[in-house]
Design a protein around this nucleic acid. Structure first.
Length: 148
DNA sequence: TTTCTTACA
DNA sequence: TGTAAGGA
């Protein structure tokens, strides 16, 4: 068993209030609670990432699970995971969750790739940062004054 | 007032 | 993603 049993994903993004158990809200309220534009909430639904109930008048009716899901989706999106992969991950997410059971082989592979992409990006950013740092150091070392 | 769908910048 | 149109 080489693979980790679980992969922990940080979704601590835009956490303003804890979901209130047993209540449902319409899109406007969910938007405020999750700091997510209604436009995006509808988009996530279009991508199958969210499947809210519908009120008799056709309005979307979101429950606690949906609110939690929005946070998870936002967190994964922030980590650069595509909506397509998020679609795969969702059924693997724990209720409260940030845990992806190792059982999701495809998801595991997709996340490995994403992790590699992030590593590459981090390496590039690090080089850029160091280059700027070197330049700044040279400027300070020179006799010439820094022009305003 | 709020939300809905569709469509375009 | 944002925003507008035209309804309920």
């Amino acid at each position: 068993m080489r693979h980790p049993t679980i992969i922990k994903i940080d979704i601590s993004v835009n956490v303003k209030s804890e979901p209130v158990k047993g209540t449902t809200v319409q899109i406007g309220e969910l938007s405020r609670r999750t700091q997510t534009p209604t436009r995006l909430l509808r988009y996530y639904e279009e991508q199958g990432l969210l499947v809210p109930d519908r009120l008799p008048n056709g309005y979307r009716d979101y429950d606690d699970e949906d609110e939690n899901r929005v946070r998870q989706v936002r967190g994964l999106l922030e980590a650069g995971v595509s909506t397509r992969v998020i679609g795969q991950i969702i059924p693997c997410l724990a209720p409260r969750g940030l845990l992806v059971p190792y059982a999701c082989a495809e998801t595991y592979a997709a996340l490995v790739e994403q992790r590699d992409r992030l590593n590459n990006k981090i390496n590039d950013l690090t080089r850029h940062r160091d280059a700027i740092d070197d330049y700044l150091h040279d400027v300070r070392s020179s006799e010439l004054p820094v022009s305003p």
